[in-house]
């Protein structure tokens, strides 16, 4: 079975890895001029900048981004799951309106959403606070989380819960032992979406965070157009790495769980 899947798996790995090759080459080059295919001179100037000169800033940026993304993800799961369940399982008046409203932050350009909310956030004294930045990230993350759970719960059979209840399971038992294990792949996908969206926010963090939150994207986006490809390459890899690790970690549980659920 492993052999049969090999070409398929190999092509996926190839397609995922190949785009990173130029980045890796650039980040380890000091001289890489046209028309050479490989760098004429290898070196670690790009990495020295990221890991030494700007180390303090970048380490603080990773920490800031990670905490923001984590908190945003947790909150969007807590709110997204019940909302998605309601939209997926029940019909109620105003359901279309609710889904339209939920879609809005995704349809309207993020810049307008952020600029509009900025004025309100100033009045509510939420600008330049951690909570404010989490809230603005939620504006973009929550709709996606809800839509993922909406899809998940459309295929969900609540009869399992009734069975458990008729056998005497408590409400919390039903939630944690019946519902959550069944929708776990959905939770993982929603969490991943949310995490990556928050992880890559630039403009909203800059405007609402007002420079108080120096997340990784703020540090990196300003460097991207430096024209210094070795540094840009190193910086891109640093930016991608955590997301890549999150993806690998979740695919494992995702693949495992969905196989179980297929039977």
């Amino acid at each position: 079975m492993k052999i049969r899947h090999f070409p398929f798996v190999a092509s996926i790995v190839f397609a995922v890895i190949i785009p990173f090759l130029p980045l890796i080459l650039w980040s380890f080059s000091t001289r890489y001029h046209y028309p050479a295919l490989l760098p004429q001179e290898f070196g670690i100037r790009g990495w020295m900048y990221v890991l030494d000169t700007a180390r303090g800033q970048i380490a603080a940026g990773i920490y800031e981004s990670f905490t923001l993304a984590l908190v945003t993800t947790l909150i969007s799961l807590v709110f997204g799951l019940p909302a998605g369940r309601a939209l997926g399982l029940y019909d109620f008046p105003g359901k279309k309106l609710a889904s339209l409203l939920l879609m809005l932050p995704v349809i309207v350009p993020p810049l307008s959403v952020t600029m509009g909310l900025h004025l309100w956030f100033i009045r509510l004294e939420l600008v330049e606070t951690f909570a404010g930045v989490v809230l603005i990230h939620l504006t973009f993350c929550l709709p996606y989380t809800i839509f993922v759970f909406w899809g998940v719960f459309s295929d969900y059979d609540p009869d399992f819960e009734d069975q458990a209840r008729s056998l005497g399971a408590s409400p919390s038992h039903v939630v944690f032992k019946i519902m959550l294990p069944m929708v776990l792949p959905g939770v993982v996908v929603a969490a991943l979406f949310s995490f990556l969206l928050s992880w890559s926010q630039y403009l909203s963090t800059l405007i609402i965070g007002g420079g108080k939150m120096l997340t990784l994207p703020i540090l990196l986006f300003s460097l991207m157009d430096s024209g210094d490809r070795p540094i840009a390459g190193a910086v891109c890899l640093i930016f991608i790495l955590p997301a890549f690790l999150a993806l690998i970690a979740t695919t494992k549980s995702l693949g495992h769980q969905s196989l179980k659920g297929m039977h």
């Binding site: 900048y49 000169t53 700007a54 800033q57 300003s222 460097l223 991207m224 157009d225 430096s226 540094i231």
Partner: peptide, 15 residues
């Protein structure tokens, strides 16, 4: 607050 697109400038400012 400044344009951060130049590693040389960043190095001078932060160093």
């Amino acid at each position: 607050y400044m344009w951060g697109g130049s590693p040389a400038v960043n190095r001078y400012v932060n160093g």
